[in-house]
Simulated scan of single mutants.
Amino acid sequence: MVATDTIDTARVAGLPEARRYHLGRWAISIVVLVLIASFIRVLATNPNLDWGVVGEYLFNPTVLDGVKNTIVITVLAQLIGIVGGLLLALARLSANPVLRVGASGYIWLFRGIPVLVQLIFWFNLGLVFPSLTLGIPGTGITLVDIPTNSAITPFVAVLLGLGLNEMAYMAEIIRGGLLGVPPGQREAAASLGMTPLQTLRKVTLPQATKLIVPPTSNQLIIMLKISALASVVTYQDLLTSVQLIYSVNLRTLELLTVASIWYVALTTLCTIGQSALERRLGKSSAVAHHQPGLLARLFTGRA
């Protein structure tokens, strides 16, 4: 405290400030840079890693097909997670004990079972249910009856495994965001005659978005990486594509390096998108602090 007061006094008096040296910080920075440079040099000069092969297969059509399939399964599974997670979060917050307990049980079950186990389960669902039948109960009328193995393709198995698992995690993220909105906002909306659905859509969700977006973006990046588990059920994602190639040419490390480069590139794009979205939400929040909110304008007659 005394040192800070001395520096502030010197600044006000126009006296030169004492230079502070951060020797420890510089030493750590130098060590980190040396380690990074050494790691890059070892990779670049290692005779057992052929970078020519990496460049040759980086844009190989089979690899690009895997990249496309990885993006598709990641986006679709995350959408299922967000939409289903919202419904589960609302059920968890419901006054209906059946909905509340049911949603809690779903979240408990799917968060407890590893994703790999879920993928294998859905892929082998035909062992338990040979056919999927839909009919009218009590009438003996069958509307749909198809073999399970025909319906549960590798794509469907991956989509179910990743999407249903993601719902459990997104439910808790969205629930936390909704609980972060001050209760007074909902009370004010109710006093204006808004229905619960209108309150959710116009008041609660817009304010909860700032709390939901950052962890949701992290979940998207996690989803992108765990989509590699799709290789166990023969879905041709990025990892499966490079596995098909190195099973023939035996250049395992080079092809895994190709996959790693693509995963890092896709993750970087997601991170850039996350940062841009957070900055936009931050600007919106800053504008909101300078302007009266919707409810405040309604109460003061300035809407």
Score class of each variant (00 low, 15 high):
Trp262Gln: 03
Ile36Val: 14
Ile113His: 02
Asn165Asp: 09
Leu200Glu: 03
Arg251Leu: 07
Ala296Cys: 05
Arg297Lys: 15
Leu23Gln: 11
Gln185Arg: 07
Thr234Pro: 04
Gly135Lys: 07
Ala3Trp: 13
Leu116Asp: 05
Met170Asp: 01
Arg175Phe: 05
Glu56Lys: 11
Asn218Cys: 07
Trp51Ile: 06
Ser260Gly: 14
Ile245Pro: 00
Ser38Val: 12
Tyr169Glu: 01
Leu116Val: 14
Ser247Trp: 06
Ile107Ser: 00
Ala103Glu: 01
Ala18Pro: 03
Ala95Gln: 12
Thr199Cys: 08
Gln243Met: 13
Ile73Lys: 00
Leu49Thr: 06
Ser38Arg: 15
His22Val: 10
Val203Tyr: 02
Gln236Ala: 13
Pro114Val: 10
Ile221Ala: 10
Pro215Ile: 05
Gly177Cys: 06
Trp122Thr: 01
Thr268Met: 13
Ala168Asn: 03
Trp26Pro: 00
Leu239Met: 13
Ile226Tyr: 07
Leu125Trp: 10
Val115Thr: 15
Thr209Pro: 01
Val248Thr: 15
Val144Met: 08
Arg201His: 12
Ala286Gln: 15
Met223Leu: 13
Leu90Gln: 05
Val67Trp: 04
Leu159Asn: 02
Tyr169Gly: 03
Gly301Asn: 03
Lys202Phe: 15
Thr148Tyr: 06
Tyr169Arg: 04
Leu266Cys: 11
Ala189Val: 02
Val12Gln: 00
Ile136Arg: 06
Val53Cys: 09
Pro147Tyr: 04
Arg251Asp: 01
Lys202Gln: 14
Thr142Phe: 11
Asp50Gln: 11
Val115His: 07
Ser227Phe: 07
Val213His: 02
Leu200Gly: 01
Gly273Thr: 09
Arg279Cys: 10
Ser104His: 08
Met194Pro: 04
Ile222Arg: 08
